[in-house]
């Protein structure tokens, strides 16, 4: 029995590797870009999997608040969120606690519960989503309509939206974050593209620190202690490492080459 299973597994893995090459990838529609399905325990416990949308939450919180202070991991399903965590006010329950939020001044619906009635089950299915409804797409359209456009990803230029004050993500939550002074800023620098004529990359340490905080990148994503010591190439990034941890999942995708490779070779 075990042997059959293993052979099957091997077969499936091999075939799936072969499938990956030479084809156009499925293009996610803008409302699905940055959507994460969290399903470590839900289905086993008889609940539909959880669908988490980054586009919806990016207007309320910085990456740093969620991924550093609240402690969500940077890959899908890595956090191993339990319903009890949520009920105790951790993870989703940090905000989704059924109380009026002092920061957002709205009542944010409660998260998981041990016991629930039929009418409360409706609330469960706002996160434990049975099937995609067009209501969510419409909500996205209505939101995106007001935002500065961008060609790829969510089709929203998040950086501009924040500059224009259209979204004001909170960076700290009382009782959760360490209320600390404004972040000290790191120097911006450019990264060489190593291919003659391919524009170099301007990487803004400053902007990224405001969005992400130092500890999200160092040393988990970037270990090198001196500029240039971590050798990473575009192939690594395409494989989802380094910059690719965020850029292709939540921040603008890699297909927008020119947004990173934007320093013309002449002005070196």
């Amino acid at each position: 029995m075990k042997k059959i299973f293993l052979t099957l597994l091997l077969l499936v893995v091999c075939v799936s590797l072969g499938w990956a090459s030479g084809m156009m990838k499925k293009k996610l529609p803008p409302y699905d870009y940055g959507s994460v399905t969290i399903n470590n325990y839900s289905q086993q416990a008889g609940m539909p999997p959880v669908q988490f949308d980054h586009w919806l939450h990016r207007q309320y919180a910085t990456c740093r608040l969620c991924h550093v202070d609240i402690g969500f991991g940077m890959t899908a399903n890595s956090t191993k969120i339990r319903s009890t965590d949520n009920m105790k006010g951790y993870f989703c329950g940090t905000c989704h606690n059924g109380k009026e939020s002092p920061v957002y001044q709205i009542k944010i619906f409660d998260s998981c519960a041990k016991e629930y009635k039929r009418d409360e089950y409706k609330r469960c299915t706002r996160c434990h989503i049975l099937e995609r409804s067009s209501a969510r797409e419409d909500a996205f359209e209505r939101f995106a309509q007001k935002m500065p456009r961008e060609r790829l990803g969510n089709g929203i230029n998040w950086e501009k939206a924040e500059e224009m004050g259209l979204v004001k993500p909170a960076d700290q939550l009382e009782g959760v974050s360490i209320m600390k002074p404004k972040l000290k800023i790191q120097q911006d620098f450019s990264l060489k593209s190593k291919v003659e004529g391919m524009p170099d990359i301007i990487f803004s340490h400053k902007k990224h620190t405001v969005w992400n905080g130092c500890e999200l990148c160092h040393p988990d994503i970037f270990v090198g202690i001196k500029k240039g010591t971590t050798k990473f190439s575009m192939v690594d990034i395409f494989e989802g490492k380094y910059c690719g941890v965020c850029h292709d999942k939540v921040a603008f995708p890699q297909s927008d080459c020119a947004r990173c490779h934007n320093k013309s070779p002449q002005e070196k």
């Binding site: 550093v68 202070d69 609240i70 402690g71 991991g73 191993k80 339990r82 009890t84 965590d85 105790k88 951790y90 993870f91 130092c214 500890e215 999200l216 160092h218 040393p219 988990d220 270990v223 202690i225 001196k226």
Partner: peptide
């Protein structure tokens, strides 16, 4: 307890590793 341990151990390690990183740098 389990929940608090999960959250704060992660946060603590992120912070400790950053200090170590900067110290190395």
């Amino acid at each position: 307890d389990e929940s608090a341990r999960k959250v704060f151990l992660k946060r603590l390690l992120m912070c400790k590793n950053l200090y170590q990183y900067v110290l190395d740098a």
